[in-house]
Simulated assay, not measured.
Amino acid sequence: MSDKIIIIGSGVSGITTALTLQLLGYETEIITAKVPTEIANKNAHPDFASLFPSASIIPHSVYSHRLEELFKLSQSFFYELRKQVFPGLTINKHFEIFEFEPDQPNYCEWMLNLELIDNLPDDTIPRRSDDKSLNGWVFDCVFADWSLYFPALIALYQQSGGTITKQKLARKDISNLSSEVIINCSGAGGPLLFEDPSENQLIMRGHLLHKANAPLITNSADEITSYNYTPQPDVYSDAEGNTCDVYCYPRKDGWILGGSRQVGELKKSNTWESLNDSSTYTIDGIQFPQEIISLNNEILSYTYDHSFEVSDDITPSVGYRYIRNRKNGLRLHQENVSGKTVYHNYGHGGAGVTLSWGCALEITHEITTKKTKELKTELLKNISKIDMKKLS
């Protein structure tokens, strides 16, 4: 196939979409203002969401009327990739725990081996102390260890003949691009390049901590365990009084600890007033809610006999998730712009990694008219021929 397809953006959605097309026989080029492998200080680029993922394959903080369809497609692809020993993919026993009775989200029905914690021994459930009445569930969850998975994804794309060109685009440049087909995976940069029909362009700021050299957390069956834990609102909440959760995702280079979910607007200067000196810690000049350490420390100490301190080897990060809007934030459709056929693939909120393969296969379906099931089978067949050791 000789026609080149240009993908704008080198985040996980851009890389995955370009790789999908490249492995299915298309010539592709990624054009990006920021090349992930060249960024040393990721905190200087909070809008580049793919630098800061927790990377659990769960559809958190994303809004789409097609969410179930796209998630299931993506989830099944991740499971197949793991069978092929793609670098960085594990299966976690993931807990979602609450100190009150929550509404169960729809996605629980889509997760594998879902079980209510009512049926589990108390000492297997992440908790702060033994006198807390807890609710929640546990399920099997694919987890992408970002320090291994994302570099392997980029390496595979380049080894497959894909090219990455560093160029900052403006709206006026679109008509001059050397392809008739453009895929817009520019994330929060999308509204700067193309008209966007959504009036409220929402972003969510989040804080993450990386605790280096921390051990994997496993259960008695030697399964990696992770959690989201939501206490009572008077323990941890945002500026509007909405209860917040903390979480821990173990990976081979340490723990990813969070978090915060501070909603603002893309085109405004947000003050993020929920942070004040009395409720924060500061590391390397970055403020973050003290509950990320205090609550996680309670849970890890009580449940898993692990602990950590602010003075430990901890690296803080602050990044944005582009929600776009809470009605149908994911923008996944085609239009004609400046004589080009443009496919939009952005607005993934907190589920960019989670939906990456599902959205890539859907975009490819729109371009080729082949069914996604057929494309998935062909793509996995081509990936099976790759020596995974060369990607590690």
Rank of each mutant, 00 (worst) to 15 (best):
N296R: 03
P316T: 06
R205K: 15
T243P: 02
T20I: 02
P53D: 12
E199A: 12
G259N: 10
H365M: 11
S294L: 08
E101V: 00
N345F: 10
G358M: 04
T377F: 14
N228K: 13
E362K: 15
A152Y: 08
S179C: 08
G350E: 01
I224F: 10
R66E: 10
I217D: 04
G329E: 14
N382T: 09
V181F: 12
D284W: 13
A155R: 15
E273T: 12
N219E: 07
K42F: 11
K166A: 05
P105H: 06
T124F: 11
N325E: 13
S160H: 14
M388C: 11
A49Y: 11
E109G: 01
N213V: 02
L81P: 01
L380E: 00
S56E: 05
G162H: 05
K381N: 12
N336R: 15
Q290H: 13
L169K: 04
K370M: 04
I39D: 03
W137G: 00
T354C: 06
W255H: 03
L24Y: 08
I299C: 05
G9E: 10
A214M: 10
T32V: 09
T354E: 06
S56R: 11
K42G: 05
I363Q: 12
C108N: 03
L120I: 04
K211T: 01
E101Q: 09
R82Y: 02
A214I: 08
S147Y: 14
Q84M: 15
G25M: 13
L114W: 07
D140G: 00
I182N: 06
S10F: 07
S392V: 14
S61I: 11
L202T: 12
E29H: 10
Y320N: 05
S279F: 12
V181M: 09
G189T: 06
S356V: 06
V181K: 14
Y107L: 02
C185T: 05
I256P: 03
P102C: 08
K340E: 04
I39T: 08
S74L: 07
A152F: 07
D140V: 04
S260Q: 07
R127Y: 11
V142E: 03
R171T: 07
N270V: 05
I6E: 07
D140S: 04
T243F: 11
G319L: 14
D145M: 06
V337N: 11
E96W: 06
L89M: 03
S226Q: 09
E362H: 15
L330T: 03
Q262E: 15
E27H: 13
A188H: 09
S13M: 10
K93T: 00
I57F: 04
L112A: 03
F78V: 01
N276T: 10
S74R: 09
N297T: 06
A351G: 00
F143N: 03
K390T: 14
V353M: 14
G9P: 05
